[in-house]
Computed example of a mutant assay.
Amino acid sequence: MFLIISLLVFVLGTLGLYLPILPTTVFYLIAAFCFARSPDRLYQKWHPLRNIKNILSNLLSSEK
C-alpha cells in the first residue's frame, strides 16, 4: 500500500517541478515517508547503494 502511494506522490512531486501550482517539496517528503514504510524487499534492494544507504540510515535512525 505504501509503495503505491509513494509512487503516486512522487509523480505528483515531479509534476510540481513543471507546474507552479503543485508543491514539489511537500510531495517529495511524503513520498520519502511512504517509501520508508514500504515492504522490506524494496528496502533490501535499495539499501546497498551508497547514496541511498546514507539517506535511509539517517532517516531510520532519527525515527527511533
Results as ranks from 00 to 15, higher is better:
residue 1 M to K: 14
residue 1 M to D: 14
residue 2 F to S: 15
residue 3 L to R: 09
residue 4 I to H: 11
residue 4 I to T: 14
residue 7 L to E: 09
residue 8 L to C: 08
residue 8 L to S: 11
residue 9 V to M: 07
residue 10 F to G: 08
residue 10 F to H: 15
residue 11 V to K: 12
residue 12 L to D: 01
residue 12 L to G: 02
residue 13 G to H: 08
residue 14 T to W: 12
residue 15 L to P: 05
residue 15 L to Q: 13
residue 16 G to F: 04
residue 17 L to N: 10
residue 17 L to Q: 08
residue 20 P to F: 02
residue 21 I to A: 07
residue 21 I to Q: 13
residue 23 P to Y: 00
residue 24 T to Y: 12
residue 25 T to M: 13
residue 28 Y to V: 09
residue 29 L to P: 01
residue 30 I to K: 05
residue 30 I to T: 01
residue 33 F to E: 13
residue 34 C to N: 05
residue 34 C to E: 05
residue 34 C to V: 02
residue 37 R to L: 04
residue 37 R to N: 12
residue 38 S to L: 02
residue 39 P to R: 06
residue 40 D to V: 08
residue 40 D to M: 11
residue 41 R to K: 11
residue 48 P to F: 01
residue 48 P to Y: 00
residue 49 L to S: 05
residue 49 L to R: 13
residue 50 R to L: 07
residue 52 I to R: 07
residue 53 K to N: 10
residue 54 N to K: 15
residue 54 N to E: 13
residue 55 I to A: 07
residue 55 I to W: 03
residue 55 I to G: 01
residue 56 L to A: 04
residue 56 L to C: 02
residue 56 L to Q: 10
residue 56 L to V: 03
residue 57 S to A: 09
residue 58 N to S: 12
residue 59 L to N: 04
residue 59 L to S: 06
residue 60 L to I: 04
residue 60 L to T: 01
residue 62 S to A: 14
residue 62 S to D: 10
residue 63 E to P: 03
